[in-house]
């Protein structure tokens, strides 16, 4: 077995057990239901801000966008204003497409549809990477938004509307939320890809498996609570509203599974700012994407630009004067 995913898998399993037994056995509801979520939230916010400020503190000395299309040049040559933007408007569009549609990742897939030599449609994981990533991120977003119903009273109408949309497929009782199912499926797909797609296996680290296992565990506990075990929703809402209003309430009858779910979410919050998950913030700050390719039009300032030694023309002429005169090249000083 591979250490790379064994260690994170064990870690997630242990974390689950810690919370479950902590509550069921040791009665540490106050810790897992009240103290730790706050600790996690503080670390998350502080860590996130610290990281982003850290990036922002580093200079952007040069304007070096990756240009992926025709530049703006002569008026009759059609510029690709999105992939090679020369204005902030173009950059904004590029970033929106990048952030909401993962455009660069989609670029991968174009080639995948080509026929190969043997004239078979070539098989490729790439389109699935793009689809899987989109499905994962959007499902996650909807799941998070849906959870705000636990922290608001009354539940805002937009959240109710979202829930309605999410539960549009009427299946069984309680109704299925698409987002939860998609989230779990997409995460499992991304995990499978890491385990079975050769190139991704090779580059994957334990740090890539850990968040996947963590999210799978979170989704699984969530789904288990909603569909399979009887949890005391009223009790949970009392607790979460307590968290939202900074008042200590530990209701009776909420089982260990819920605390484990909450604990794993807290762990995800803590892990977030110190991991690759920070790509969520980083994507906004990536200088190869968020800058216009207009360095020739508008001067970009390097805050730490400093003077350097150069070999001046005078030194050059001093060095070569005789040869230059002999060759009939103009010189500034005749001797």
């Amino acid at each position: 077995m591979n250490q790379k995913y064994l260690i994170p898998l064990t870690a997630v399993f242990l974390l689950f057990l810690v919370a479950y037994t902590g509550v069921e056995g040791a009665g540490l509801q106050w810790f897992f239901g009240f103290v730790f979520p706050y600790v996690a939230l503080v670390i998350f916010v502080a860590g996130f801000v610290y990281k982003v400020l850290g990036w922002a503190a580093s200079a952007v000395p040069f304007r070096i966008p990756t240009t992926c299309g025709q530049q703006k040049s002569l008026p009759w040559i059609k510029q690709n204003a999105i992939d090679n933007p020369s204005t902030s408007m173009g950059v904004v569009v590029r970033m929106i497409l990048e952030i909401f549609l993962f455009r660069s990742l989609f670029r991968n897939t174009k080639a995948a549809f080509n026929k190969n030599v043997s004239n078979r449609l070539s098989y490729s994981w790439e389109i699935f990477l793009w689809l899987g990533a989109l499905a994962f991120h959007y499902a996650f977003l909807v799941v998070i938004l849906r959870h705000f119903r636990f922290f608001t009273s009354p539940v805002p109408s937009c959240l109710q509307f979202l829930e309605k949309l999410d539960g549009i497929v009427q299946l069984g009782l309680p109704g299925i939320f698409l987002s939860g199912v998609v989230l779990l499926a997409a995460t499992l797909f991304l995990l499978a890809r890491r385990i079975f797609d050769a190139k991704v296996t090779y580059i994957s680290q334990a740090a890539d498996y850990f968040p996947l296992f963590l999210i799978i565990a979170i989704a699984a506990t969530g789904i288990a609570m909603r569909y399979f075990t009887k949890v005391d929703i009223i009790g949970i809402k009392t607790l979460t509203m307590g968290l939202a209003t900074f008042s200590y309430v530990i209701p009776e009858g909420v089982g260990g599974l819920f605390y484990a779910h909450l604990f794993l979410v807290s762990i995800l919050f803590i892990y977030f700012p110190m991991s690759k998950l920070m790509h969520m913030g980083g994507i906004f700050l990536s200088p190869t994407r968020n800058m216009a390719n207009n360095t020739r039009m508008k001067r970009h300032i390097n805050p730490w630009n400093y003077d350097v030694d150069i070999h001046t023309y005078e030194q050059y002429e001093d060095h070569f004067r005789e040869k230059m005169i002999e060759a009939g090249l103009p010189v500034d000083k005749k001797e």
């Binding site: 080639a111 080509n114 190969n116 030599v117 070539s122 098989y123 050769a198 190139k199 296996t201």
Partner: peptide
């Protein structure tokens, strides 16, 4: 082995 798994894929001849 790591390279072989990728190179052995039946993909576009230019990729």
């Amino acid at each position: 082995p790591d390279a072989a798994r990728i190179l052995g894929k039946d993909s576009n001849r230019f990729d």
